[in-house]
Each structure stands twice: as C-alpha cells, then as structure tokens.
Design a protein around this nucleic acid. Structure first.
Length: 679
DNA sequence: TTAGGGTTAG
C-alpha cells in the first residue's frame, strides 16, 4: 500500500470518533492517565477539533490537572491550533508556574495567527520576568517579524539579541532570519545571514532559494547559489533543494534555465520530473513535454497521479487524441492511479477537448462516483460539440443523482442552451433559475454567455443593453463574441463599439484592430481603416494569421492560407480542384462575402479556395484511406464559406470531419454540421 | 515531557 493512501484510510470523521471514545473512556476512570490525556489533547490539536478539545480541558480541570504546567502548555497549543486564541491566552494566564515552553508556545500561536505585536510583546515580557529564552523562543519571535517590512527593525533587534545570547549557530533560528529578511524586503541581509551560517541544511537552502525567487533581481544570485549547490561547496545534495531550483527557474527565468538545472542533478526524483513536465506544459511546449514523458517510460521510472495529470494537460487538443488515449492506457495499468477522482476528471476533460465524445462518454460511465467536476465537464463537452439536448439532459440527471450544481455548471448550461439553437429565452430561463432556485450569483462567465445567446439570435440591442447593465467590466471574450455576432448580422455601428471594447481590454490582441479597420473599410472610410492598421503596427501587434493543424500518424502538419510549402502541395491543390468541381456540379456557389469578413482574407476566390483548413482537409483526404475521420484544429473561427464547403466535403467523401476552431467544435457528417450553422 | 525554520506536482 502506498503511504499516502494509508494515511487517508482513516477519515477525519473516524479519527474524531476515536477521540470522542477515548475521552469517554478517560471520564469513566477514577485516576488520571496523564500520558493518555496529553495524547488526546495532541490529537485534538492535529485535527483542529475544538469541541473535543474543550471536553478534555474540562476533564483535566475536574481531575485537578487543570493548572499543571505540562498539561496547560499542551492545552494552549491545542487552542491555538484550533484557532481559539482567547482560550489559549486564558489557559496561559491561569498557569501559575509558567516555564520557557509556556511562553514560547504562546508566542508561536500569536505569530501564526498574525498577531505579531502581541508575540513580540510576550517575548520581551518573558525576558523581563527573567526567563532564560531558548533558541526556539527566538525562532517564534523572528517569525512574528516576517509579517512585513514594518517589522524589519524589530527583526534586526532580535538578530542582535540572538547573537548576544550565543545562538548565532542555531540553524533553525538562523534560517528563520533568512526568510524573515527576505519577506521584509531586505534580500541583502537575507544573503548575508545565509553566508554567515556554518552548516546550512536543506531547509536553509530552500529558504534562500525562495528568497531569490521572491525578488526578481535575485536571478543572478540564484545562479551562483546553484553553482555552490552543484559543486557541493556547502555540503548539500538534497534532492528537494535541486527540485526547488528547477521549479524556481521555471517560474522566474524560463524553460532553458529550468532544464539546465534539471540535467545537472545527479538523482532527480519523481517530483523533479513532474515539476519539469509541468513547466513545459505550462509554457505550451507540448511536444517537449511528451518527449520527457516518453523518456520516463523508457527509463522505467516510477510515475504517480501527478505525472499523468500534468502530461494530460499537453493532450487537450484534438491532434493529440492518440497520445491521450495511450496515456489513458498507461493509467489503467497503474495500480495507484486508478479511482483517483482528479485524474479521472482530467482524462474526461482530455477526451472532450480532443473532440471525442464517445471516449468521454465511456470514461464517464466507467466512473463509480462522478463528482460535480465530472458532471460539469460532460455538460461543457456536450455544449461545445453542439449537443444541446444531451448537455441539458445531463444537467437534469446530475440533480437526480444528488449532485449539487455549482457556478461552473451554470456557465456550461447557459452556454449549451444557446449553443446552436439561437434560443435566448431558454438561456435566460436558466440564468434566472440559477439565482432564484439554486442561489448561485451570476459572475462574468454567466453574463458573457447571455450576451452570446442574445447576439447569436440577432438581438444585438438587447445584448448591448446587457453589456451596459452587467455589474462587471465585460472581458475580452465577451467583446469578441459580441463583435462576431455584430458582423454576421451586419450591424456595423455596434460592431465598432465591440471592437473598441476588445481593444480597450486587450490592446495587445489583433482581433479588435483588424475588425475595426474592416468595418471602416466596408463603410468606404479607407482613410480611417488605414489609420487603425497603422496604429496596430505602431504598437507592434501582428495580425493573427490563420493556421490549421492536422495530425497523421505521429506527425503534425501545419498549414497557413495559400500555403505551398508542403511537399505534396500540388496533389493538395489538385484534390481541392477536384472537390470544387464536384461541388459546383452539385450546385454550390462560393460565397464571396466571407472573403471580406474573414481574417485570413486578401484577394477573392483563389485565397478563399486555399484557406488553411481546406488545405489541411485536402491533405488529410489524400493521405488516409477512404472513410477515415479527420481531426483538424484551427486557431481562428471557421468562415462561412469554408463551413459550407466542409459540410459538402463530408458528404462527397463520406467522411467525418471534426474541426476545433477558436470557439467550438464542428462535427461535419453527411453534409451537415453539429453546430447547426450557429457558431 | 512539551515549542521552532523551507520546499517540490494537480
């Protein structure tokens, strides 16, 4: 049995039951078993069980041990851990023969509850009363000074006093000083203190590394520290220190430094590997993350739930479905990872994000007790794929199963109810019921979905009113979705408003500028259009080029509009021409309006003909056997003409084509799309 | 026979 699993075998409830039983047993006895009593007090402290703690306190008083200093000290600690400072203080005051432990414990309790002034006052009162402090008393008082720069003078005074008492070599107290100086803003004093240490241990190293990471300008110093660490200058080769270094580099410097720190370590452990993989995933370097994971497999290294959770984060894109499935298979073979709810939810999410609802459904069915996150994930997945009724059915079902919906549930429910039906009334009904029947307060996400639902239905004036009335500043997503709806309904006036809103919230993104320039151009104001384009370029913002990705086997192929760089480019264009001919004979006419509306556009038909997703689809067709489904990812919204074209292609070629665009999934099958032409 | 420092994955 894994140690972590073992420790959770007894739930908190069971442990509380044991304590209660122990107190009952003690009450029945005539004599007092001091050892057993203290053991119970300690358990109460560990579990934060205030009620049980009070019962045992009562019992101690009854048997005449209420003011025994050893017992009192434990009671003070217990009340402190349970968050009742007043009771801790009362027990302390009522203890006649206070010793250095009594004082130090109360100082610690005060410091841990942010009562720094009180802690310091106690420390000096203790000295005044002639109690000889221990180095632990200093540690507690120094900690009280970590609360902020305003305590720096008090911290320095304690440092001086510590030396006078001859505790300058006490490693724990000195490590506290390293931390305290950093938290009070004085990296220099933190470094000086660390350098003064004769035998810093792993904890001291970590405190120093954390200090450098906290102060961005400490990066160079961090490199020096790493060098010392690697060369064993101060005799520390702790793997946790090495892992902390990797993590700090990933956070403060970048992947290059993190990787360099990793490869230099003699014995990275599972957590070191997890930290590095997580860093790659967070920097969106999915391919490199997968390579690391494969290396772990090849080396036969032990993996845990976190390894799987991290690496699955790299598989949440349709082109990674096969990788995701392979990792799911690894999980099934891993005894410790099965039945781990967060991991199961991540797998479920991965299938949804990869566009495979069948896999998601199978996963969901296999879960013994899906929690609210699992239900939310399914509802969101159905909504994203345009399966509104399934999403809403799951919403009903979860409540029948006794799972209480949360605010995330309603974002997905409202989003699903307006996904393709264009029925804002339904979305609005959920928006109202969420508040009235379920007590969920609407957040930015809920309002965003409502704006989207009204916008899709063409009720742009209502959407605009909602934007004006909502108690939040609309986020960039809300503005861009409103913008897209204004454009598709030809409302240029409101489109301008939305574009300006998008630019205001995210001046670094190109979407707002491009849209605004296009609206002015459409209205014939070319001067204003070119002014906006220039403004965008002056701010160093580049237009987001349309890109589509398709994965065949283990290779990933990327296409941009009009791209001829693929070695099979001629065949791709021949296939597009062939499809085009077939479509035209079936009565299809390319819709030129979409050229002007689309971000990729330039000239008319030739470029429309070669939009990135079309190239990817044609490449998929000529590279796979008939009937194979195609999975494509696009970074922008699919334009109307490509949407029509893909519908027809799915019919002509009898293939399922799944396109994940920047907004949602489109399942093209037999001439129609799951979004029912609302997107 | 009690009290103290730091850090690592979701």
């Amino acid at each position: 049995m894994h140690p972590r699993r073992l420790s959770t075998l007894l739930s908190k409830r069971q442990q509380l039951g044991q304590i209660a039983a122990a107190i009952d047993a003690l009450q029945k006895r005539k004599d007092a078993d001091l050892k057993e009593c203290v053991r119970v007090i300690q358990s109460c402290a560990r579990l934060g069980a205030l009620a049980e703690g009070r019962r045992i306190h009562q019992l101690m008083r009854r048997v005449g041990l209420g003011s025994d200093v050893y017992v009192s000290n434990h009671l003070v600690m217990m009340y402190g851990k349970c968050g009742s400072l007043e009771e801790a203080r009362l027990v302390f005051e009522a203890t006649p023969a206070k010793n250095v432990f009594s004082w130090t414990i109360l100082i610690t309790v005060c410091a841990q509850h942010g009562r720094s002034q009180e802690a310091l006052a106690l420390f000096y009162e203790m000295l005044k009363q002639g109690i000889q402090p221990h180095s632990v008393s200093f540690t507690a008082a120094i900690n009280a000074c970590s609360a902020g720069p305003e305590f720096l003078p008090a911290g320095r005074a304690l440092h001086a006093l510590l030396r006078r008492y001859g505790f300058q070599d006490a490693v724990v107290a000195t490590t506290s000083l390293v931390s305290m100086y950093s938290k009070c803003g004085s990296l220099e004093e933190s470094m000086r203190t660390f350098e003064s240490m004769t035998e810093p241990n792993a904890v001291s190293w970590n405190a120093m590394i954390a200090a450098f990471a906290e102060h961005r300008r400490g990066l160079e110093a961090l490199r020096t520290l790493q060098k010392m660490f690697l060369e064993g200058i101060r005799a520390c080769s702790d793997v946790v220190v090495g892992t902390t270094l990797v993590n700090m580099y990933a956070k403060c410097s970048g992947l290059h430094d993190a990787n360099a720190a990793f490869v230099k370590l003699q014995e990275p452990n599972i957590i070191t590997w997890n930290v590095l993989i997580s860093a790659y995933v967070q920097h969106c370097c999915f391919k490199e993350a997968m390579e690391l994971f494969r290396r772990m497999l090849l080396l036969g290294l032990e993996m845990d739930e976190v390894t799987f959770i991290n690496i699955l984060g790299a598989c949440c894109v349709p082109v990674a479905l096969e990788d995701g499935r392979a990792i799911h298979a690894c999980v099934r073979e891993h005894p410790l990872a099965s039945n781990h709810a967060p991991l199961e939810n991540v797998i479920l999410n991965m299938y949804g994000k990869c566009g495979s609802l069948q896999d998601a459904e199978a996963m969901f069915k296999s879960m013994s007790q899906p929690d609210v996150i699992a239900w939310n994930t399914m509802i969101a997945a159905y909504g994203q794929h345009g399966h509104t009724s399934e999403a809403l059915r799951f919403y009903e079902l979860m409540q029948e199963e006794g799972v209480v919906p949360d605010d995330y549930t309603y974002v997905s429910v409202i989003d699903a109810s307006c996904a393709n039906a264009g029925l804002p009334e339904e979305a609005h009904a959920y928006f109202v019921s969420m508040q009235q029947d379920h007590g969920v307060r609407p957040g930015g996400g809920h309002y965003g979905c409502m704006v989207e639902s009204l916008g899709k239905a063409g009720r742009l004036s209502d959407a605009e009113t909602l934007i004006q009335c909502m108690p939040f500043e609309p986020d960039v997503l809300t503005w861009t979705s409103f913008l897209a709806n204004c454009r598709s309904h030809g409302d240029m006036k409101r489109g301008k408003l939305a574009a300006k809103g998008a630019i205001r919230i995210d001046p670094e993104a190109s979407t707002g500028y491009v849209a605004l320039a296009r609206i002015h151009a459409d209205a014939g104001d070319f001067q204003e259009a070119s002014r906006i384009r220039k403004l965008m370029l002056d701010r160093g913002i580049r237009k987001n080029a349309g890109r589509s990705i398709i994965k065949l086997g283990t290779s990933v192929y990327e296409f941009t509009a009009g791209d001829q760089s693929n070695p099979r480019s001629k065949e791709i264009f021949d296939e597009l021409k062939r499809l085009d001919k077939e479509m035209k004979s079936a009565g299809y006419d390319p819709d030129m309006a979409h050229v002007a509306h689309d971000v990729e556009a330039g000239q008319k038909e030739p470029l429309l003909f070669a939009h990135s997703e079309r190239l990817a689809i044609a490449f998929g067709i000529i590279s796979t056997s008939p009937g194979t489904p195609l999975r494509i990812m696009k970074n922008l919204r699919v334009c109307g003409d490509c949407h029509t074209m893909t519908k027809l292609t799915s019919k002509i070629t009898r293939r399922e084509i799944i396109v994940r665009d920047s907004n949602r999934f489109h399942h093209f099958k037999n001439g129609s799309c799951s979004c029912k032409d609302f997107w």
